[in-house]
Design a binder for these strands. Sequence first.
DNA 1: CCCGGCATCCAAACCGCTTTGGATTTGCTC
DNA 2: GAGCAAATCCAAAGCGGTTTGGATGCCGGG
Lengths: 345, 345
Amino acid sequence: MSKGVNLKELSNRLQLSQTTVSRALNGYPEVSAETRRRVAEMAEKLGYAPNSQARRLATGRSMAIGHVIPRSIHEMMNPIFLEFIAGAGETYSKHGYDMIISVVEDDHEEDAYRQIASRKKADGVIIHGPAADESRHRLLREINLPFVVHGRIPGAERETSWVDMNNRRAFERATNLLLDLGHKRIALLNGLEHMDFARRRRVGFEDALAARGLAPDTGIMRSSDMTEPYGCDNAMEMLRSGDPPTAFLVSSMISAIGVARAIGQCGLETGKDVSIITHDDALSFLPNSGEVPIFTCTRSSVRYAGQRAAELLLDHIADPEREPSSLHLDAELIVGQSTGPAPDR
Amino acid sequence: MSKGVNLKELSNRLQLSQTTVSRALNGYPEVSAETRRRVAEMAEKLGYAPNSQARRLATGRSMAIGHVIPRSIHEMMNPIFLEFIAGAGETYSKHGYDMIISVVEDDHEEDAYRQIASRKKADGVIIHGPAADESRHRLLREINLPFVVHGRIPGAERETSWVDMNNRRAFERATNLLLDLGHKRIALLNGLEHMDFARRRRVGFEDALAARGLAPDTGIMRSSDMTEPYGCDNAMEMLRSGDPPTAFLVSSMISAIGVARAIGQCGLETGKDVSIITHDDALSFLPNSGEVPIFTCTRSSVRYAGQRAAELLLDHIADPEREPSSLHLDAELIVGQSTGPAPDR
DNA sequence: CCCGGCATCCAAACCGCTTTGGATTTGCTC
DNA sequence: GAGCAAATCCAAAGCGGTTTGGATGCCGGG
C-alpha cells in the first residue's frame, strides 16, 4: 500500500520488462503461470495501480460514459434523473467504467456533446428526456458518438437504441380502470407535453376515452412541470369549478401528493370522493409500497431503466457494428388506496 | 469541424512546432500575436480539440472531481444529493473540470477512494453526509487526496474544509418561533441521528426547549430516513395518542408533506389546529415559495452549497498549501402558512 | 544432430500532449 | 558596429501505460 509505484518501477523490481508485467496483469496468455504469480504478488505488495489517464491514452478508449444535463432542466433536474443515474452508475462501475456528468448552460448542450467527442472524454452518452422534436440523436450520429436514449425519439425508434416504458399503454390501462370504476369525468395532470413521454401518456388517456365513445375535455387537462404545487393548485381549481372531475390521472407522485393535498383542503376524501391514479417511478425516497400502497399507480422503476440503458450502451461500445436494440419496459398497474368507485351524483 | 485532428497534424499544417502551437493555444506569452492568430484560426478551421487523456497524462492533473456514493445511501440517495451535485457541477464546468460519480456497493466505499487516488482518477473529492463517527477524512488524508466536506465532521471542524449550514441555530430558531406561538408540546421528526446534521438539529431543538425550562419528550421525537410515509405514519400515531403534539418540527419537506397528509386525515387543519415547521433545502421540484409559502420553514439552498463547496475544493487543489477553510451558511427562517398560535385547549 | 515450433520474454514504438533547455533573430544601447 | 537582452520558436524528453515485432531457449521429430 505504498504510493505512486508505476509500471516501470514495478518491472524493475521484478527484473522483468514492462511488456511482460503489463501482460501478466492484464491476463494475456504469453506469460508463464509462475511469472504471473510473481507479478501479481509484487504488484499487490507495492500497491501498484495503473494510471488511468495513461491507460486511456494508450488504448484510445476513455472508459467513461457521459451524461450531459442542462443547468435548468425542468422535468429532469428532479429525483427521477438521479434515480436513473444511480441505476446506470451501478452498471458502469460493475464494468469498470466511469460516469461523468456535465452540467451545462442550456444553450451549450450541443457544445458539450461535441467536446465529449472531440476531446475523447467519453466513449458514449445517454440522451435524457427526449423531446417531441428531438434532434440530439442526429448530432451524435454526425460526430459518431455512441448513445442510448432513455425514452424514445418519435420517428427514430428503429434507428436508435433506447430503453423506455410503455407510456401509452400504461395510461390507457389506468384510464380504463377509472372508467371501469364508473368515473366519467377524469382530469389529466400531465408532464410537459413537448416531451415525448408526456405526449404518449396523453395519447393513452385519450385512446381509452375514445374507446368508450368519450371525448377528452381540455378544460380538465393540464401539462406542466411536475411539481407539488402544480398538482395542488390545478386540482384545487378544478375541484372548485362548477363541474369538478371525480378522478385525476397524474404523471408523477410528486404532483399526485399535491392533488391529494388539494382534495383534503376541499374537505373531500381521496379514494372515496375523488380518485387518483399516478405514475410511480419507484423513487427510493417516495415509497408507495406497503400492503396497500397509498396511491393506485402505474409503476416502472427508473433505476432499473438506468441499469439496462447502461448495459445496452456498453454493449454497443463493445461492438459498434451491432444493430440498434431497445428495451420496452411494461409498467405495472397497481391498485392502492387512492381509487374507488365514482361517487353517486 | 472535421474530425480527429491532433496537435502534430495541426502543427504540420502550420509549419510550426508542436511546442509553439501548444503554447499559442494555451495562452503562453512567448508567442507573437500574429502567430497566435494564425494558430487559432487554423485550429478553428480544422476543428482541433486537445485529447483530454493525453493532456491529463502530460500535466499529471486529471481535471476531474470525484463523488462516491454508496449504492444504497439512505438519506442521501435523495433529491438533496442531486441538487447539491447540480450546484457543484456548474462550478466544475465553469472551471473546465469534469465531475465523475461512482456508485459503489456499500462496503466498497473505501476502495473507491483508494482507486481514485492510486489510479489518479480525480484531483479531489467531496465527502457527502458526514456521520457522527465519520472516518473518511482520515483515509483521504492518508492517501493524500484533497477533499471538502458537505456538512461537518464532529471534532475535525478545524482541520478540514467544509461547507455547512447552521443546523443547530436553525432548529433553535424554529423551535423558538413555535414556543413564541404558545406551543408547548412540539414533536421532532428528525433525520437519521447517526448523521451529523441531524444530531445538530436535535441539539438546537433541545437547547431552545431548555432555555425555557422545558424538557424534551422523547415520546414525540423520532429519527429516521426522511421519506413521505415516515412523516405521515409517525404524525398519525402521535396525533391519535392521548396527548398529541400541537406542532411538528420536521427535517425535510418530503416528510413534512407526509405530516400534512396525516393532519388532514385526522380531520385537522395545518397551520390552525396543528403547526408545522420544516427544513427546506430549496429543491427545484418542491418549491415552497409564493407570497406566503405553504410551509413555514428554515431554508438553505443545497444547490448553492454545492457551488461553494466545489469552489472551495478547486481552490485547495490549485494551492495545496492553503489552510483549511470553511463556509457556514445561515438558514433563513421563513414564515408560511403552516404555523399559527397554539390552539386553546 | 539439425530444424521447425512453441513458450516466454523483451526492446522499442506509440498514444497525444506539455514542458525543458536551448537556438536563432531582432532590437537597442553605447 | 559590438554586445546583450528580449522576443520567438524548436527539438526532444517526458507522462505511464499498451502493443508490435522480434529474440531466446527448449522441445520433440526426422
